[in-house]
Design a protein around this nucleic acid. Structure first.
Length: 216
DNA sequence: CGAATTTGACCTGCGC
DNA sequence: GCGCAGGTCAAATTCG
């Protein structure tokens, strides 16, 4: 149904996932083009808007809201300052894209180091959604990982933000290697994948029942 | 022992 | 205004 695993569906010039992840907006746009998708897939859903990540970014707030203000210091009153801080955080809009991965493991390795900071049960899905943040200092990239309730073997990963650093060297040897350009259109690998997960890259709107825009 | 994960509480925004 | 759902925080716990 939504598998895009055959090589001919991909453009000839490919980029790696990591390129996309720490790339610029141009690359992000290229990604969209690469998959023949418009940024429309990111039109905010009600929930995303609730999260405050869309729209009203006319004022491009400073990045790293968290690290920048409480990097070293701890605020005394947890509740109050948290709320105030969040308010500012929500103004900014981060580039975001989602893709689906056929994988047995929820947290697939993408070359970066992630720290899990939350997990929530998702409505209409028996599987929880996990929230990860890039552990690199000053990198505010986040990702959400959830398993598709329609296809439990599929993991939906949503990246938010862009890495402002290189891949952690410690991971370059193994995971990063997997993400080099050969990974995406794995003509050779597609059938005989040696990965724990097959990437059948798909820009994914959050709500997959939106058939008009989803190819799932 | 430091880093990462778990998990319950809390906050926010939206729909009714 | 209230309840719900998503997102985040941070203390406690586990892991390497």
């Amino acid at each position: 149904m939504f598998m895009v695993s055959s090589a001919e569906q991909y453009p000839s010039s490919y980029m790696s996932l990591t390129d996309c992840l720490h790339g610029s907006m141009d690359q992000y746009g290229s990604l969209e083009k690469a998959f023949g998708l418009s940024s429309e897939v990111f039109s905010p859903t009600r929930k995303e808007r609730a999260a405050g990540n869309c729209e009203e970014d006319s004022e491009n707030k400073n990045k790293q809201p968290k690290e920048s203000d409480d990097d070293g210091g701890k605020e005394s009153s947890k509740k109050g300052s948290k709320a105030a801080k969040k308010k500012e955080e929500r103004k900014q809009k981060e580039p975001r894209f989602a893709f689906m991965t056929k994988s047995e493991v929820d947290h697939l390795e993408d070359g970066y180091r992630w720290r899990k900071y939350g997990q929530k049960a998702v409505k209409n899905s028996p599987y929880p959604r996990s929230y990860y943040r890039c552990t690199t200092q000053k990198c505010t990239v986040k990702k959400r990982v959830e398993r598709s309730y329609q296809d439990p073997s599929t993991v939906i990963t949503t990246y938010e933000g862009q890495h402002n650093h290189q891949l952690p060297t410690s991971l370059r040897g193994n995971a990063a290697a997997l993400l080099q350009p050969s990974m995406f259109p794995p003509p050779q690998l597609a059938g005989t994948t040696s990965f724990p997960h097959e990437l059948f890259m798909r820009m994914a709107p959050h709500h997959m029942n939106d058939q008009s825009r989803s190819i799932f």
